[in-house]
Amino acid sequence: MAVLPIRIFGDPALHSPALPITAFDDDLRVLVADMVDTMHAAPGVGLAAPQVGVGLRLFVYEYTDTDDVVHSGTAVNPVLLVSPPPVEEADEDLDSEGCLSFPGERFPLVRSADALLRAFTVTGEPFEVAASGWLARIFQHEYDHLDGYLYVDRLEFSYAKAAGKIARKRSWGGPGQKWMPGVDTFEGGA
């Protein structure tokens, strides 16, 4: 398959709600395989279709938890139910999050501890995953991409201000900006 370029903060594909998938066909299977290759090359634990410039409701994920259990899959047309997030300030260590579309940076963000993902596989079979901890965070992060949000859009004021400063310094914020996993690098990792 192929590694795809990842869109950077400010690209319109990242800031628009994605459309439902209607065809479970070979084109979808190729897109999913390319997204998995891209996620691995980046490297990341999740990747949503808008991040590669495709405005469809789809994300892939692969995460190994502390018990060495690998959680991986493809979520087509997902619905995500979450517990209420705690009302507290984000912890800089425990809540630190990054994004392949805001590469090389991490900021703390409070997320819900539990999530229930309902979606379809690449072949159209329905499935459900109950998640907690980091897997729940990954689902929320990728699901946000499908609604046109990046995690930096949800940061507390001081962190949002710092993210804005970084975006301006790197001249991010417009259409067509992207990076290529395996070719481009960012200090601090993606």
Rank of each mutant, 00 (worst) to 15 (best):
D27A: 10
D25G: 07
H15S: 08
F24N: 07
P20Y: 11
R57Q: 12
G44C: 07
G46N: 03
A13W: 01
M39W: 04
L28I: 11
A41K: 10
D67H: 15
A48Y: 06
A41P: 03
P43R: 09
V36M: 08
P17A: 15
A49K: 02
V30K: 15
G46T: 08
D34K: 15
D65Y: 14
A49E: 07
D37I: 10
G46W: 12
A48N: 11
D27G: 11
Q51R: 09
G46F: 05
F9T: 05
D27R: 15
L56R: 13
A41Q: 10
H40Y: 06
P43E: 05
M35I: 09
Y61K: 10
D11E: 09
L47M: 10
D67C: 11
A49P: 02
D27T: 13
P17V: 15
G44E: 03
A23W: 01
I8K: 03
A13C: 03
M35N: 01
I8W: 01
E62L: 10
D26V: 03
L14C: 07
V60P: 03
A13E: 01
S16W: 07
A42H: 06
P12E: 14
L14H: 12
G10L: 00
T38M: 05
L56C: 11
G10D: 01
A49M: 02
H15M: 11
F59V: 04
V36W: 04
A42N: 02
V52I: 10
A41S: 04
F24R: 02
